[in-house]
């Protein structure tokens, strides 16, 4: 028997790693992957709670999140391809023309 807190803490650690990835990496693709990691950590927490509460709603939400993530990745990667076409780089630091 595993206390649910373990899952939650694991989820928090994974989320923090995802946050760090977004902040530290300059490669837009890796930033994107970090975002996916954060989504996953959230999913893990939801499923853990769902299991404790004996409710399938949580699982259904996770299913939706996965669907939304798929759509998001499709659009995001398309955007990235376009950006690469324009800038010939996917370094986010190169995209700093919008500054004061």
């Amino acid at each position: 028997m595993i206390p649910v807190e373990y899952y939650i803490i694991l989820s928090a650690i994974l989320f923090a790693i995802g946050v760090a990835g977004v902040l530290v990496r300059r490669n837009a693709l890796i930033i994107f992957m970090s975002i996916e990691l954060m989504l996953n950590s959230a999913n893990l927490a939801i499923v853990a709670f769902s299991s404790v509460l004996k409710s399938f709603s949580g699982q259904v939400f996770v299913f939706f999140v996965i669907a939304v993530a798929a759509a998001e990745v499709a659009v995001g990667l398309a955007l990235m391809v376009e950006i690469f076409k324009a800038k010939h780089s996917i370094d986010v630091d190169q995209m700093n023309s919008l500054k004061g």
């Binding site: 977004v22 902040l23 300059r26 986010v92 630091d93 700093n96 919008l98 500054k99 004061g100």
Partner: peptide, 18 residues
């Protein structure tokens, strides 16, 4: 003074959110 905050780097904006 304030416009220096708007440095154009999306990472630093995200950092401020954090």
């Amino acid at each position: 003074t304030l416009r220096k905050v708007q440095n154009g780097f999306v990472r630093s904006y995200a950092l401020s959110v954090l």
